[in-house]
């Protein structure tokens, strides 16, 4: 029952967007409710990144409405959007860390630059140390992004995304280009973040393994690791799945429905299961 009473955090209503060609998003509608984990699968070029950027207000849809925390952001000006964005964490595909700043400066960036947050340098420093400890990279404060491995950069990206304690976190292909072991480490951090902070999350990926881990595992504070917990049986979050194909959502449903699907495009993702 509790699921129905949850308020929508992110809503796409018939959103379409194109850049000089076929639509990148084609009449996309979905809702992510508070406390939910939502995983969207899609191949390269299916519109995953564009969907997340539209949710952040970085791209404006040609038609349709986007609502975040109940606010319609579709026609908002950039200055107004800063306030909304301060409540959303975003992990970009390659981390998108600022090359010219140290890891500490990168993670402190939203704390010092978001108008609605305004941390003092001391508060920012404490929070930076805390989140870097969370992603187990507290020893990298003075380093530059170029000195870190791909997986480490991705973890710093997560630290930066969650530094302001946003109630909604968006993950853009968090494991793209990483080896399977590092990829699992990244997903473990995402699960830990979800279960410790009880945030709503939306992850786009092309790896079914990522979605399965998010759905079937939970963070165990006693051991500091993950423990199996079938989707929806544990307290707190529930994971829902969607599949994006050439800008259209072709599947919305539970893990069971996803795995039972006979659609060749959808089953391509499930077949990749390890």
């Amino acid at each position: 029952m509790a699921e129905e009473t949850r308020s929508p955090v992110l809503e796409f209503e018939d959103v379409s967007l194109s850049f000089e060609g076929p639509p990148v998003l084609d009449h996309v509608s979905f809702t992510v409710n508070e406390g939910e984990s939502c995983v969207i699968f899609g191949t390269a070029g299916s519109g995953k990144t564009v969907l997340l950027k539209t949710a952040l207000g970085l791209l404006k849809p040609d038609s349709g409405r986007v609502r975040v925390f109940g606010q319609d952001i579709t026609d908002m000006r950039e200055e107004e959007l800063f306030d909304v964005r301060s409540r959303i964490g975003m992990l970009f595909q390659e981390g998108a860390l600022f090359d010219s700043l140290t890891i500490e400066e990168n993670v402190a960036y939203p704390l010092l630059n978001q108008k609605s947050i305004h941390s003092t340098p001391d508060e920012a420093r404490r929070r930076v140390e805390e989140v870097l400890r969370f992603v187990e990279l507290e020893h990298t404060l003075e380093k530059f992004p170029s000195e870190l491995s791909g997986g480490m950069r991705r973890r710093v990206g997560i630290a930066r995304a969650i530094a302001t304690r946003p109630p909604l976190v968006l993950y853009d292909s968090p494991t793209a280009g990483l080896d399977p072991i590092t990829a699992n480490t990244i997903v473990a951090v995402i699960i830990k973040q979800r279960d410790v902070s009880n945030v709503t999350s939306l992850m786009v990926t092309h790896r079914y393994q990522d979605g399965r881990l998010v759905a079937d595992f939970r963070f165990d504070p006693a051991t500091g690791g993950l423990r199996p917990s079938p989707n929806g049986t544990g307290p707190g979050t529930r994971t829902r799945f969607m599949v994006l194909k050439e800008g259209s959502l072709v599947f919305r449903g539970s893990q069971k429905e996803l795995e039972a699907s006979t659609d060749p495009y959808i089953s391509r993702f499930v077949a990749r299961r390890a």
Binding site: K53, L56, L58, E78, F82, R85, S86, I88, M90, F92, Q93, E94, A96, L97, F98, D99, Y109, P110, N113, Q114, K115, I117, R160
Partner: peptide
């Protein structure tokens, strides 16, 4: 240009800076 193609410009906007 490098910042643009590595999404640092988008990240900047997402993190509250014009």
């Amino acid at each position: 240009g490098s910042m643009k193609v590595t999404e640092q410009i988008d990240a900047m906007r997402a993190l509250g800076t014009d």
